[in-house]
Design a protein around this nucleic acid. Sequence first.
RNA 1: GGUCCCAUCGUCUAGAGGCCUAGGACGUAGCCCUCUCAAGGCUAAAACACGGGUUCGAAUCCCGUUGGGACCGCCA
Length: 470
Amino acid sequence: MAEKVRVRFAPSPTGLLHLGGARTALFNWLYARHNKGTFILRIEDTDRTRSTEEYIDAITEGMKWLSLDWDEGPHRQTDRFSIYKSYADKLLKEGKAYYCYCSSEELEKRRQEALAQGKSPKYDGRCRNLAEPVSGRIPAIRFIMPQEGETVVDDLIKGKVIFDNAQLDDLIIIRSDGTPTYNFVVVVDDVDMEITHVIRGDDHLNNTPKQIHIYKALGYRIPAFAHLPMILGPDKTRLSKRHGATSVTAYKEMGYLPDAFVNYIVRLGWAHGDQEIFTRDELIEYFSLEDVGKSAAVFNPEKLLWLNSQYIIDSTAERLGDLVMPFLLKQGIIKEGQILDKEWFSRGIRTLKERSRTLVELADSLRYYISEEIEPDPKAKEKFLNERSLPYLIDVKEALKRLDNFIAPEIEKTFMSVVKKHRIKLGEVAQPVRVAMTGKTESAGIFEVIEIVGKEKTLKRLEKAIKIIE
RNA sequence: GGUCCCAUCGUCUAGAGGCCUAGGACGUAGCCCUCUCAAGGCUAAAACACGGGUUCGAAUCCCGUUGGGACCGCCA
């Protein structure tokens, strides 16, 4: 390895950071970290009408949430227009580019006609050999593509891909308004930033031969390419808004842990034997482009949910406590400034870790520990808070009232005495009590719930349930 | 329409010609555990798209078919 690896993630700020972008960023980041190289963030905002500051913030925030830290940037292409201009002038002077006076309306019309006739809608090169400027028109600048021979893209993932140059057309590198276009700036920037490996989605594979010719015209060495397969929605089409949540921010808000999310998307197109769960360090150690698959992957929310639950189980109660706080606030379970006893809070979380798949679910369960009052779910109330369970509830309440050592094992003993007295199964008393305590038919172990809720609130909740029945 | 890419259980994937009676994971079903729900454990159903080659031998190599996807902008 003679040369230091330099890679970049180059999103256009025309939307939030989506799944596919996040994975492209992740693979670039992993490649850089694995090879002790440099990871650069570059904002491709040459399309000024669609790019916004808000989206730039959203993208960097998404990356921060995933802990994908960059070493250089964010560079912004709008800050670099003079660089592109000078390269374009150079090409013009060397006869490798020319002014094109066709209007976008004319171009669009010709394109539609060609398509309608089933022909390839490529530019016919009519301005290529113009002797005189067309007066009254502001020209765009086109790059001259070779029309013969073939271009080979030697891709690290797809292998050798051969393109016929005859299908390439002279592409616009500078618009008539003077702004540069994507296929041009991407090359200039990758050259200027000394990018060694271009790792991006395979929707760019067809652009690559054009870019290779620009590299050549500029007299630069061509970087290595690695085209990542797409991530598709459940209907196997490209992931888009209609597939529901596609931005990383949405997953943050749904209560996913960033490490679980990263673990999920890294396995879309990459594998390391049979291993499913990886620490960040393992990812960096194992990651290799050779292990990236060629075929597109369908996004599967169920598996992400499972991974998230595994990450929750493996997290400490203290960390989960910090993570769940914003959700408790948002779900109205605690108020701003409300202070919870740390030890008590962690105990509660420990009982809920393995039954919460997301932080939203965890917060929701925490409600029955934290809230003063419990509103029983109507169905649960109907099924368990009735005449039949009334005597059990009364006996449990009375027994607990007499209990001083209010800890789970002692609470269990009081339940067993009620069970013995009525010759019933534990479930017959546990379920009504659960509904009284949590409002639901499922929860953490009932003795632990009672211990954590505490004697005072427990008695209140039982009394309330008894009152409901009577 | 043209060009390019891709093809193993429903989904993510392991698989570099014999270790494959095709492995793991999610999901699904059943059982165990059990105060509920989970978690955990065990078990089951579930795939090499199809057709030709090459080879002693093919999920693996080649060709074709079919199917899916991406791109063909003064978007990126």
